[in-house]
Simulated scan of single mutants.
Amino acid sequence: MKQILATLMLGTVLAGCSTSASQDTPKEPSSAKQEQPVLLEKTSAYVPNPQLPDDRQLTIIDQTVTDDKGDLTLKQFKPVNETRKIGPIKMTIEEIKVFHARPSYGMIDFFHGYTHDESFDLMKIRVTITNTSDAPVTFNPVAHFKLDDEAEKTLEDDVYLESLAKTYAPSETHSGNFGFILERPVTSIELLTSDVLDEKQAVLQKGTTYSTSLR
């Protein structure tokens, strides 16, 4: 009996030592699995759009790009590179493009929220917005959008959904696109921005307009 008790006590001591040793052993650093997200909004890094193909290489009329989201064929292209100062907001309109878009089968449901056509024309405007102040401000680059003095669009019609209407942190820069499905060919546009608001939603600067011909 004493021999059995001694054996049991020895086993308990050994188990305790094993547990202590495993607790004392330093763990592998977990930093490799806990990478910090890159703040793409504050850099010039390109962020792929989840709905539409990357059109950066489309600069020649009738050129087409294709990926798993569908294909885009360039119909109109206007490099702009015009900067507007709206209070503390600096907004550069970089380019305007019109595509014929044919979404892939997997993207059809998304676009059915905007149109029932399987393919359609699409206008895209690329902008870079910078808050030049040392305080946060709220701004929307496309409060109102007019096509040929007829059709009108707002940010609710935007298919790119790249969060350009938001509160911009001090010195924050955000590049992105907004765009609308077209029901007919377009020869001119007029863009009206929102007002620039401070933290208390007071108006710092009234919105501005930008208009251009696409001919």
Rank of each mutant, 00 (worst) to 15 (best):
I108Q: 12
Q76D: 10
G106N: 13
K78W: 02
V196P: 00
T128E: 06
F178Q: 07
L161V: 14
L197V: 03
D149A: 11
S119G: 09
L192H: 07
V159C: 13
S104M: 06
T132L: 06
I96E: 02
A135R: 04
L161F: 11
D148I: 10
E95Y: 02
P170Y: 01
I96L: 14
V137E: 00
I89L: 01
V80Y: 07
R184N: 14
L191A: 07
I189M: 11
P170S: 01
Y160D: 09
K78S: 01
K78Y: 02
S188T: 08
N131M: 00
L192F: 08
F111S: 11
L155S: 09
T128I: 02
R184E: 14
Y114E: 14
R84E: 03
M123I: 15
G113S: 12
T187E: 14
I181N: 01
Y168D: 00
I181Q: 01
E190P: 04
G113Q: 14
P79H: 02
N177G: 04
S194P: 08
D198F: 02
I86H: 01
F145N: 07
G176I: 11
V186A: 13
H112T: 04
F145K: 11
E190H: 08
D158R: 09
K90V: 09
S194F: 06
K97C: 08
H174T: 07
T115V: 04
L122M: 13
D117S: 10
A151I: 14
E152I: 15
T130I: 06
A135L: 10
E118D: 09
A135V: 11
G176V: 12
Y105K: 15
Y160V: 07
F99R: 04
F110D: 14
V98A: 04
F180S: 11
D109C: 00
T130L: 08
L182W: 02
R126K: 12
E95L: 09
F99K: 06
M123T: 10
N81L: 09
V98N: 03
L72A: 03
P88R: 06
L74K: 10
H100F: 12
V142I: 10
V127A: 02
A165N: 13
T193G: 03
H112W: 02
T130N: 03
T83I: 05
E162V: 09
V142L: 12
V142R: 07
F99Y: 15
L161M: 15
Y168K: 02
V127M: 05
F139A: 05
E152W: 05
K75T: 13
R102I: 12
G106E: 13
Y105E: 13
I86P: 04
L164A: 05
I86C: 01
H112Y: 02
D121T: 04
Y160A: 07
T154I: 08
P185G: 02
R84N: 03
R84W: 01
T132A: 05
